[in-house]
């Protein structure tokens, strides 16, 4: 009983009240939700934040009609290849990026509105055996793809009309790249995590692989979410979907690790552990915005952490409508989007 599990916590820390429900989106045509995100959209001279929802076969754009009400603007139907995820393009406007594929990403497409033809359309940006993809500031997209013969890491500069303006190949590490994160405040720096449990650093301008640093084997399959450089150290927010519970720190969902890029040495800065009562492998998927992390737990609840203090700040239990399946931060710190598989999404102010 999830409510019973959460009772000790609600009196002693994270509170559901920290998350205030702002509005609900119910997509009755969506039978199996795969992702939710936000996008800046400019229409008739005004720029506003819109919600993007994805099912396996279609992606829908929602506009705010009233403070607590959303209306569907358009739905892109994408054919036979299922949608796997929406790839947020942080500061892009009127551009939605999606990854499609079966077991892994096979193609990346841009969804957009063309003022030339006065119609919504989609275009192909990349195909391949794509292992990881990330959207960066200034309409840049980085992806890693791997076949038996070739390992490629590439940055694509996207155009507003759905094409690519430029491409830059980055030097691949030996191991498969599992995730990327932009280094905030350093436009040309990018970090990635690999299947060999290392953090790698690239120079995006030259394509150089600058450094490979060991994370440590106690937390396999770590994924990087965010990075920033301060006082000569590189701070990386990692999540640990497969971490096991230990006596010293419980079950870490997120960890902030400081790396010295000069020496490759690292030190743990802060753990963010699962709330009490949640044991074992409980983390399904998560998202990081600024210094807050959110994750869906196997109980069907969503937990929110203050990553710098290592404190679980809020827990959203599964409601009568069912378990939560997705947790995403809205762009610009506009709130938390929680989604269920049945096409129900809640926007919370945090």
């Amino acid at each position: 009983d999830v409510a019973e599990l959460l009772t000790p916590m609600l009196t002693d820390g994270p509170r559901e009240e920290s998350l205030q429900l702002v509005s609900e989106i119910k997509d009755s045509s969506c039978s199996c939700t795969v992702d939710v995100s936000t996008v800046w959209w400019e229409a008739a001279g005004s720029r506003e934040l819109r919600v993007v929802t994805a099912s396996e076969s279609a992606v829908s754009l929602w506009e705010p009609l009233a403070p607590d009400c959303w209306g569907k603007v358009y739905t892109w139907h994408l054919g036979e290849i299922p949608v796997i995820q929406i790839v947020p393009l942080l500061d892009a406007c009127n551009l939605v990026c999606v990854a499609l594929g079966e077991l892994e990403i096979g193609e990346i497409r841009l969804l957009l509105y063309s003022s030339e033809t006065d119609s919504f359309k989609h275009s192909l940006v990349k195909t391949g055996n794509i292992k990881a993809v990330v959207g960066l500031k200034d309409q840049r997209l980085v992806s890693s793809s791997r076949t038996m013969q070739e390992h490629q890491v590439e940055m694509v500069l996207l155009s507003e009309t759905g094409g690519s303006k430029d491409r830059q190949t980055l030097m691949p590490p030996e191991e498969t790249v599992t995730a990327f994160a932009e280094v905030e405040g350093m436009r040309e720096a990018l970090v990635g995590t690999t299947a060999g449990n290392t953090v790698v650093v690239w120079n995006l301008k030259t394509g150089q692989l600058l450094r490979k640093m060991n994370i440590g084997y106690s937390y396999p399959a770590s994924i990087c979410h965010r990075a920033y450089s301060d006082s000569g150290l590189l701070f990386v927010v990692l999540s640990h979907p497969h971490a096991k519970e230990s006596e010293s720190c419980g079950s870490p969902a997120f960890r902030v690790v400081a790396f010295n890029p000069r020496t490759g040495r690292s030190a743990g800065v802060m753990f963010s552990c699962l709330p009490p009562g949640h044991v074992g492998r409980q983390y399904l998927e998560g998202d990081v915005w600024d210094t807050t992390g959110a994750a869906v737990l196997t109980s069907g609840a969503v937990a929110v952490w203050d990553l710098l203090r290592g404190r679980c700040a809020a827990v959203l239990p599964p409601g009568p409508g069912g378990h939560w399946a997705l947790a995403r931060w809205a762009a610009g710190g506009a709130g938390l989007l929680a989604g269920r598989r049945d096409g129900t999404f809640h926007l919370y102010r945090y």
Binding site: T206, Q208, R211, G232, N260, T263, S266
Partner: peptide
């Protein structure tokens, strides 16, 4: 963090590593 555990720190690590790494 304990600086001695992490070794000598450079504020210009990105530029320095870019100058040293193979192109």
């Amino acid at each position: 963090c304990n600086e001695s555990d992490l070794g000598p720190i450079s504020l210009n690590w990105f530029e320095e590593l870019s100058a040293e790494a193979p192109l």
